[in-house]
Structure formats: C-alpha cells, structure tokens
Nucleic acid binder design. Sequence first.
RNA 1: GGAGGCGUCGCCUAGUCCGGUCUAUGGCGCCGCACUGCUAAUGCGGUUUGGGGCUUACCCCCCAUCGAGGGUUCAAAUCCCUCCGCCUCCGCCA
Length: 425
Amino acid sequence: MIDLRLLREDPDRVRASQRARGEDVALVDALLSADERRRSSGMRFDELRNEQKSLGKLIPKASPEERAELLTKAEQLKADVKAAEAEQNEADEAAKQLLLQLGNIVHSDVPVGGEEDFTVLETHGTIRDFGAEGFEPKDHLELGESLGAIDVERGAKVSGSRFYYLTGVGALLELALVNAAIAQATEAGFIPMLTPALVRPRAMEGTGFLGQAAENVYHLEKDDYYLVGTSEVPLAAYHMDEIIDADKLPLRYAGFSPCFRREAGTYGKDTRGIFRVHQFDKVEMFSYVAPEEAEAEHKRLLEWEKQWLTSLELPFQVIDVATGDLGASASRKFDCEAWIPTQGKYRELTSASNCDGFQARRLSIRYRDGKKTQPLSTLNGTLCAVPRTIVAILENHQQADGSVRVPPVLRPYLGGREVLEPIAK
RNA sequence: GGAGGCGUCGCCUAGUCCGGUCUAUGGCGCCGCACUGCUAAUGCGGUUUGGGGCUUACCCCCCAUCGAGGGUUCAAAUCCCUCCGCCUCCGCCA
C-alpha cells in the first residue's frame, strides 16, 4: 500500500500515478474521504473510551449511593463506546479496502502507456545471422524433442496443456542452470533460500498478487492456501511483522521454488513448447534495503541479471516497462528480453521490480535507524526462470547438425559437456 | 489424526487460580547523563508497537496494544468461546 501521509499531503501526485496506470482516479477521492471518516470516528472513540476509563476508576472507591448513580451512567456509556467502536472498525476496514486497491506510485521516469510503450534502455550481445551460416534455425521444441530434453505431449496427457516434462539432458540442463544461478547469487552475497510454495492469504495479499493479478493465482479452497507464482512471495513475507535494525540492511536472498501460474487470458498465446507454462522453477533475487538505497539496488539487481544473461552468451535488450504493464506493487520495472531467433523478436526472460515501501507497508516490515522506525523498501529480480532460459539457450546456441553448444558457465554443472547431441529416435 | 502443555512491550521473567491498587514487575541488553587519567565499575534517567491531537521540529497529551478475533462485565493480561503458532507424547508417513 502507499503512504497515507503522501495521499493527504499531495493527492495530485497520487491521482497522476493512478491515471498513468490507466486505473480509476475516483478511487483516490473515495480514499481521501474514507480516511477522513476513519480519523474522526477514531477521535470520537478515543474520547468516549477515555471518559469510560475515568468513570471506571471511581466506582470501586465510591460510597454505595454514589456507586449506584455511577453504575447507571457507566451502563449508558458502555453502549456509546460499543457503537463508537463499531463505527471506528467499519471506517478502518472501509479505508483499508480502498487502500489495498490502489497500486504503487509510479516512478516519474517510467514511460506512460500500455504493454507496447516500453523504452529500450540497452542492447547486449550479437544476434546470429543463420542465413549467413547457411541453415534455418529450429525452434526450441523441435530441438528439445530431438535432444530428448522436452516432452510436451506426455505433459499434456498427464496434466493438460501448458505442462511438460523435462527429460534426460533437459532435466540435467535445469539442474545446471539452477546451480550456476545460485552460485552467481551466492558469490554476490545473496543467502540461498528454499521456500514454501504454498502460502496463506496474508502473504499473497501483502505482496500485491490478489488485486488485478488474482485471476492468475491458483487457490486451494479446501485449505485456503495459495500456490505462489514466484518465490518473491515467501521471500517478502519471510520478515513480515518484523522490525529490522538498519545495520542489518541490505538483506539479500536468492530463492529457489516452483512457480504456478494460471495464465488466464492468454489463450492462444505462446501455445507451442515451454515458453508459457503453468508450472516452472525459478531462481529469484530479493532485497530488503533502506528507502534511499532502493533505486541504486534496483540498478544492481539489473546488473546481476545482465551478468547472468551475458554469461549464458544470450543476446538481449533491457527495457523500462511502461506504466500500464507494471503490476500493482512496482513503482518501476526493468525487463531483460532475450532474442528468440524463430520468433524474430526479444522476449522477457527476467524482470526486476522496485516496490519501494509498498509491500513492506502491507506486510508490516519496518527498519529501525536510530529512533526512527519506518517501512523499508523491497525489490525483486528474476535470476533464472528455467523454461524460458532453456528456450533461449536451445535456440541461440543451436548448430547446423541439430546439436546445441553449452555455454562455458554451465559446463562444470553438466559434467564438462560442451555440446548436447540429438538422440536416436 | 489423538492427548497434554505453552504464548506478557528486543531477550528472560512477575502477574492469570480469586477481574478494579496493572499507569504490566524484576533482570539482561541497549541509549543518554553524571562521576572518573583511559577502560571498567557505579549512580540516575530512558527504552513495545500502531493510530490520533498539538507542533517548523522537539516536547507533551489521548486512545489502542499482554499471540489474533469475538463474548461476559460499569471494568478483562486475568473469566468464557473460536482461531493461529510453538513444544511434548502417541498414531500415520516421504
């Protein structure tokens, strides 16, 4: 959630942010009046309660006849206090509900617009010219099947569309990627974490995934658990309700977990292969930092992502995601998009978001610097989303004979293997 | 799944049986001040969190907060109910 003080002091800024996201600006005014009601009903309750307390102190000391009178008065007060409390609770709840609907304030440098209105910040690596090399590139599924690495047919048989098996070298490739990614993150000072994949509603809500993103979240109704779409959720909720000493910051975690996404509203999109699937594994970086460090940390996360993609020898570009495509929690988001030869375009492989205090406020995570206690900033960035990385590696490193060159960074984790060869059918 | 125990303002802890004197005790840690060649020790004061009022700010004041939420009562850390978490034992299990 955003800072209510900011809303009171500079409502126009909040309105502008809401407009840039393409969301309803009327929500801001509804929230302002709800906040006012919350405040006045709170004051009324405090007053009555104060009166009740002072009256209550007199009763044990009163003489019998005074006592009877006081009790009558107290009884009346009791009803008033109860009514005022109900009013206060209702006003609090109403304000909270509105507040939870409001997305984070967008950073002023973010390009305004929808999915297609991003700004390209950088491009890295060289796109291969397969024409000059004299062969037509195969797509990742064709390659994956001939390598005995990917089986989507049986994935569909067992679990339905958008499910897959990684088999043989495919399975080994995932393990290699995960190990290499965790090694890079650990080297950079991240604490490796294996996290729960099922979380309570509070964790899901606190990270901002139950707003407009809710339709993409799996929910186990019988137990009221949510399946996480990213380990960002358990990593953010890890320090929920805690106050962290300033000298402990920054805290950096590298989470590894399965990720589950319903992919509602993507019918017919990326249906071939394993680019868009319901379940995949991912190594995610997560940082807790002091607010004044957030922007610098955001750039650092991006640098680590670039280091990773560069080490895999993939050509990619970095984009500044537009306001309409940010998601509720982020004030700014940088995506790294790798070149996919058979699609002839760059596709998202990693995503680094600066959430400022948005998640920290919802999850009640603060830090103490001297006397001050205030929400800290949380940031997250993908290091390796496995299936998409496999797609990019297979397609970009394929050779004319249908084999795939293994980038050196992965070789130690693949028993020194330099090439993945097609297997006989 | 069954039985029992526990949850107090950083940590430990008193208080809960028997409701009001709890404005929650004491210790540790931490912060400030005093004293002191330095350090240590000692003394004094402070030290939950959230909301609100007053303020440039500080200070100060009010309300809530004893795992969470309800209930009983004029009044709840204390009595009742539900839930959550942790621990012990039993059962089952990768």
